[in-house]
Design a protein around this nucleic acid. Structure first.
Lengths: 101, 101
DNA sequence: TGAATATATAAACATATATTCATATGTTAC
DNA sequence: GTAACATATGAATATATGTTTATATATTCA
């Protein structure tokens, strides 16, 4: 594959990130971390009413990709947004009118 | 699943669109359509050095989702960006420093 | 009509992703 | 030490996605 104005590395990087956050639960996680700065897994799980394990999988997934960061404090592990740009991305998309499929 | 500040519909919509464009070839397609306004399938295929069929699949995919639009002119079918917001999304992501995986 | 061109479609396949469940690990308090 | 809690991990599974190949459809032009 060739590319146009963006070089191939940038194309891949952009695709990588968008794919990484392109999932309802992960968008919701990012959204609660927009408001709360830092949250424990159990707290995210509780707020989103999603299984602990599922939340954990997705948190680790995004951490691995550099989107989130975490630190332990006692029994809890607190996650926070690392790649703040994803907030802008979500804001960009919030108000566009799509024919709902 | 519950959600935070965004309602569940918006969360799903945002995820839907980001997932839809989160692929290197599709980012590259959007990128050439940023510069060219309107392009035939064969021209996109040629510029990106990607198989006609693969390009066609991805164009139709994005058209179905409301991201692109197309019109026929003789033997050619010209595609164009419909959901311009995706350009902003890509721009948002262009310059963030990710630890490359 | 038939040849040439452009695009779409469908089948087949490999690979990736989302989700659940059960279990392991790490931490605190007793 | 053990109990209780928080989180991670791994297996298993269903489903979705990306890609190729071959073929069908539409259009133009001779």
């Amino acid at each position: 594959m060739k590319t146009g104005t963006l070089d191939i590395k940038k194309v891949k990087k952009v695709a990588f990130i968008l794919k990484a956050i392109g999932n309802p639960l992960r968008i919701a996680i990012i959204d609660v971390l927009r408001v709360n700065e830092e949250l424990a897994v159990s707290e995210i799980s509780r707020q989103l009413e999603a299984e602990q394990s599922l939340v954990s999988h997705n948190l680790l997934n995004m951490k691995l990709k550099g989107i989130l960061d975490s630190r332990r404090e006692g029994k809890n592990i607190f996650y926070r947004l690392k790649l703040k740009e994803v907030l802008k991305v979500i804001e960009c998309m919030e108000n566009c009118d799509m024919e709902d499929l």
